[in-house]
């Protein structure tokens, strides 16, 4: 082999590297640098050392947003995995019109989150919303939903689970179809019930898929923003839906405290990194790659 062909490989790598470097790697380091400054965008950045970070750890609203994000993640992740798996199991059956059902479940995923949020705003409207109309028919007292500090977050969670369902369903379906049919046949011959089949064949063999969906859902949950921004202006009633990304958005683009916002962003980065590392190192051991 001649040496030139080895080097040419690097040239193929250059375009991706340039794009990744300019739009991903460099901004990460740049924002880390800015988090040590006080910067209102219009003036010049002023070095303040770790002040932004020490202020962060004294900021009650940061802790509130942290807690709200954890609340969101801890409810949304299991709920969406459970829902997606159930739907995927149903859609894995050979029934007529399966393509139509699969399409229906996938439509929310490709719909713009802003459009979806406006529709759900209407569903949740305290006076004229669909949900309250339904409750009144069932003689349950109507609720204020997005305007109620207790209900606002569950409302956002429900909408988010619905919105993301189709995506996870597709991944689970792919996973389900990778499981060899003969295993089920063998199990049936041995007299295993459907529940046993699920417990001992589907669940373990699906674990790489479940793991992937779990990791991606956790990351996505920590980054929740659009629906909160669209459905609960100013972080919801009594800041009950103030999540980290919304808080950092508010600091950066409403109050123009870029240094502080980027300090929040960096803490968020560390958190997501940490959780993902934990998932990779600890949880992945339990994954059964066939």
């Amino acid at each position: 082999m001649n040496k030139r062909s080895d080097w040419s490989a690097y040239w193929y790598f250059v375009p991706v590297f340039v794009i990744m470097f300019c739009f991903q790697v460099a901004p990460i380091f740049y924002s880390l640098a800015i988090s040590f400054y006080r910067w209102d965008l219009i003036g010049s950045p002023e070095w303040v050392g770790v002040e932004n970070f020490s202020r962060l750890f004294d900021d009650p609203m940061f802790y509130k947003s942290l807690w709200n994000t954890l609340y969101y993640a801890m409810v949304t992740v299991p709920l969406s995995i459970g829902a997606a798996l159930s739907v995927a199991l149903l859609l894995n059956n050979p029934i007529s019109g399966i393509g139509i059902y699969r399409t229906i479940y996938f439509i929310p995923v490709i719909t713009s989150i802003n459009a979806v949020a406006i529709v759900w705003n209407f569903i949740y409207h305290p006076d004229y919303g669909l949900l309250n109309k339904l409750l009144v028919i069932m003689s349950i007292p109507p609720q204020k939903w997005l305007q109620d500090p207790f209900w606002a977050m569950p409302c956002i969670i429900l909408m988010s689970v619905w919105k993301g369902l189709g995506y996870n369903v597709i991944i689970f379906l792919a996973g389900l179809q990778n499981i060899p049919k003969h295993l089920y046949e063998a199990a049936r011959i041995d007299g295993a019930t459907r529940l046993q089949q699920f417990r001992h064949i589907t669940w373990p063999l699906l674990s790489p898929t479940t793991f992937f969906v779990f990791v991606m859902s956790v990351i996505g949950s920590f980054q929740v923003f659009s629906q909160v921004y669209m459905m609960t202006p100013r972080g919801g009633p009594l800041k009950s839906t103030m999540v980290i990304v919304y808080y950092l958005y508010q600091k950066a683009f409403e109050k123009f405290e870029f240094g502080y916002a980027l300090a929040i962003a960096f803490v968020l980065f560390i958190m997501i990194f940490g959780v993902t590392l934990f998932n990779k190192l600890y949880l992945e051991k339990k994954v059964h790659y066939s």
């Binding site: 500090p149 100013r234 009633p237 009594l238 409403e254 109050k255």
Partner: peptide, 17 residues
């Protein structure tokens, strides 16, 4: 002033809730 206004909105919201 915007920061103050924002803070006022939080308290006014709490007051009628």
């Amino acid at each position: 002033w915007f920061e103050i206004r924002d803070l006022m909105a939080d308290h006014l919201e709490r007051a009628t809730l």
